[in-house]
Design a protein around this nucleic acid. Structure first.
Lengths: 347, 347
DNA sequence: CTGAAAGCGCTTACAG
DNA sequence: CTGAAAGCGCTTACAG
């Protein structure tokens, strides 16, 4: 005979209720309770209501660890990233958590170094050992096809967040960096700038490729050709922005505006301009990308492209919570220009 | 008869090995394998070695979900915080992960709003539903005694990261904000400043209390009294720094130096000084606290107190991985001043 | 030092 | 629409 359980157990008792308690008190089998938990249609309406009421009254929540063991899959969503921008990561986490709240799922974070040889194996172990329900792939690891292939191979669901569609629609959140940069081009042209420099991110980053394409596309359509040497590749870092700006601002003639493909590099341009006595925006207009906290801390406050990273994280996590057979559509998040005081018509 | 298992299963087979496979291949019971996994001393040395070799060869890793169910405790560490500084949070996560790597534990993040009434219940559900192994409490939630009491009550291990010892030694990582601020005072005095303003954080934050105490303590010991109105409470935000600086810099005489209890507020002081034509450091020395990325993006680069947040996270997580009966000692992390270009002797 | 039985709290596969 | 049995991969409690 199995150990008898105290029948008087209530929500306030020391030990939590289990599916057995609910089943016993509802006068049904635990399998039926399980069906209610998993929203199976194979339960009579009144049975379902009785069980649900009981669960609510006793504050019963099914144990995710036990369900995980039976399902061979945990109630954890992983977030995999290799990104030095703290604000971006934190906002992405907040967004993901917005979607996971009250879902019974939790967020497990996995920063990694995508340049280290073993990083894909590291993600594999992370996913397999914890039997993750799915993972969010944040740029720039989201751009790594080998990583996506590995996840596919081990049967792990994932969503990739990237500047452009790299995968099946149901696995993508597209951030349309192309359009954000195009908006910058429109804005600078509308102010009258015709000699504009572009400080790009690393040429192998999709975000940098798309931002450059979006920006240059507008110029081309308007028939504007930039002088030689105006498009300079940098590394998305402050230091790389300083180095690139030093060359760019020493040129004769000097560009009247610089589009920096992120705010960190824009801060580098500010630094060099200040040192060289070049006034922003009177002598030089500057635009960034990201609308990081830095943008409004700089002087003058930096005009920049905002991406709603929190919303991006929210959408990506929500996609992973969808049932496998749900309608499959690509998600989109749109950037937009936030105008501050770092631009004016050319001198 | 239970379903027979393919005896030829290897590390490369589709399905992962289980404790049963190891037991069968080693010719021992699964209980013995379990003892090896859990480092029980009750295993003969040669038995242990045989089992360990087998586990290694087959790449066997015990399933944390199954262990979690049997232990009634997961292999997850929670990080609970309510802190707007992205870099601080991210560094804390990196540090925690440094300690968790290859431990079989993973990090689950739980940002929350400590001003919302239900937040303690939210943490309780988080901890109980996931049966967390332990949680890291980051400032400012680490200062909330009601939260610590709740965790104690439900039997959840925790480590509090705070400016000062608030709890039993084995539950504390102390960041000694007192000493960091004292170092700032020594430095400014050594430059010759005697009329210094202090822009404090919210008066009910332990970090702000300790930074103010540490700073003022040095002045008192040196017999230096500040003019009235030199200690101003602000809110650790950029905007509050701007507001406080506006008053402070309009005073006559003006202080020759300002110690800001974080970098965000120092950025606010920079903003006002720039607007008012007050030169830093020629006419005003400024010191921050945190040594955030912002500190080196400002011009002139900001002298600030660095706290090794990553190390703090590392230490806190490591404490949670210790066996319950391990020697119990308080952990300490020490701040130190990073000198840049925002200070010089008074005019 | 080692093992057979029972159990952790769920779900799957099967039967009715 | 509902349920009894077996199982997920481990550990605890007990016995030897």
């Amino acid at each position: 005979m199995p150990a008898a359980k105290t029948p008087s157990r209530t929500a306030t008792a020391g030990k939590a209720n289990t599916i057995n308690d609910i089943a016993r008190l509802a006068g049904v089998s635990k399998k039926t309770v399980s069906r209610v938990i998993n929203r199976s249609p194979l339960v009579r309406q009144d049975t379902r209501e009785k069980v649900e009421a009981l669960m609510r009254d006793l504050g019963y929540v099914p144990d995710p660890i036990a369900r995980g063991l039976a399902f061979r899959r945990s109630f954890l969503i992983g977030m995999v990233y290799d990104n030095p921008t703290a604000q971006f990561i934190v906002n992405m986490q907040y967004g993901a958590l917005d979607s996971l709240r009250d879902s019974g799922f939790e967020l497990v974070v996995h920063p990694c170094d995508s340049r280290s040889p073993g990083y894909i194996d590291g993600v594999r172990r992370f996913v397999q050992q914890q039997k993750l329900h799915g993972v969010m792939l944040v740029p720039r690891v989201s751009e790594d096809q080998a990583l996506a292939d590995m996840l596919d191979e081990i049967g792990c669901r994932y969503v990739r967040i990237a500047a452009v569609a790299l995968d099946a629609p149901e696995r993508m959140v597209v951030t349309h960096d192309h359009d954000g940069a195009a908006e910058v081009a429109d804005y600078l042209l509308s102010l009258g700038h015709r000699d504009i420099a572009v400080l790009t991110g690393p040429a192998h980053y999709r975000s940098a490729i798309e931002r450059t394409r979006g920006f240059m596309g507008v110029l081309e359509r308007r028939g504007i050709a930039l002088p030689a040497g105006r498009v300079v590749e940098a590394g998305y870092t402050f230091e790389s922005g300083v180095a690139a700006a030093e060359k760019l601002l020493a040129a004769t003639p000097r560009p009247t505006a610089i589009f920096c493909e992120n705010d960190e590099m824009a801060a580098g341009v500010y630094r060099v301009a200040l040192r060289s006595g070049i006034q922003i925006p009177q002598q030089l207009s500057v635009v960034g990308y990201d609308d990081s906290p830095l943008a409004s801390r700089l002087w003058p406050p930096l005009t920049s492209v905002r991406r709603d990273t929190r919303d991006t994280g929210r959408v990506a996590a929500a996609m992973l919570l969808q049932p496998e057979d749900a309608p499959r559509a690509m998600a989109s998040v749109r950037p937009h220009l936030v105008t501050r005081d770092s631009c004016q018509p050319p001198p």
